[in-house]
Design a protein around this nucleic acid. Structure first.
Lengths: 144, 144
DNA sequence: TTGCATCCGGTACCCGGGTACAGGCTTACC
DNA sequence: GGTAAGCCTGTACCCGGGTACCGGATGCAA
């Protein structure tokens, strides 16, 4: 165990919580490290790099499950990152498109001057269904 | 209770699950309806509209907590939708910007031809930290 | 050797928005 | 009046990515 890093050292160096280390180990993202006779973990310095890589890939929008696959693929010389990245770009494009649509609706609503969802005034562009507004006494019984 | 709609009817008409109705009621999004002597709920037809409104507003990116506020504000004649919508647009812009940044990194990675996170080849644009790659025997002990 | 920081495993909880299930009761229709 | 569909409450679980807390053990320095 000479030169091995302890849990807290690795966590501090990688910028994560100590619990996160054990969580990653449980999920198979981090190899089980050697132990001292007393049961304390002793990490090689590469563990820090590995966590940083995980965090970086995570920032690219990959889930921990996907990262597990990617790491395993890499360990066995199988590639596959490129294909996954291409798929992820498509995924992101879809999310951006969805957000853009929502944004458009919100802007329409603001521009129409609508200021209440129960008494909406933003015809004809209101993104909220207009048939039968929420007025009248029908819902008042829970107003207490 | 004449003309009152039952749980299942409201759920079907509004396109949600029966459990969702009760969930909304618990959260205060849906007024507590009248009951039959046997304890069954009887909804006014406006309940269907209300759920549709909730779902529509939710699609605009508002959380149920925010929708609760919005509904309450509307019920008391207080406006506030416009301000919230403006803030939400800013929120969406931030998310689109973040996604765009991530997208750029992914495209860089693909264009650089990098195909593995453990043996990355995409200098100089690699979005994954490069100092000390994940090679060598240090992490092999968990390869079983 | 004593003191204290750190570490251990296990379990429970957080966020948001529901969904599922169990066991029992009511209502509607024939 | 029988039967089946639908309803009731309460509780637990799902997703993803951690975080928090507990009581007890270990490691290291003075």
């Amino acid at each position: 165990m000479r030169g091995a890093l302890r849990t807290g050292e690795v966590a501090a160096a990688a910028g994560v919580n100590v619990q996160t280390l054990r969580y990653y180990e449980r999920r198979g993202l981090l190899p089980r490290p050697a132990r001292t006779p007393g049961g304390h973990r002793g990490y090689p310095s590469q563990a820090v790099v590995r966590i940083r890589v995980i965090k970086a890939v995570q920032r690219l929008g990959f889930t921990l499950d996907e990262i597990t696959d990617l790491l395993e693929a890499g360990a066995h010389g199988r590639p596959g990152l490129r294909d996954r990245a291409v798929a992820k770009v498509a995924e992101i494009d879809a999310r951006i498109a969805a957000l853009t649509t929502v944004r458009r609706s919100l802007v329409d609503l603001v521009e129409a001057g609508c200021d209440s969802i129960t008494a909406c005034s933003c015809r004809p562009v209101c993104p909220i269904p207009l048939d039968g507004r929420l007025d009248g006494p029908a819902t008042r019984d829970a107003d207490d």
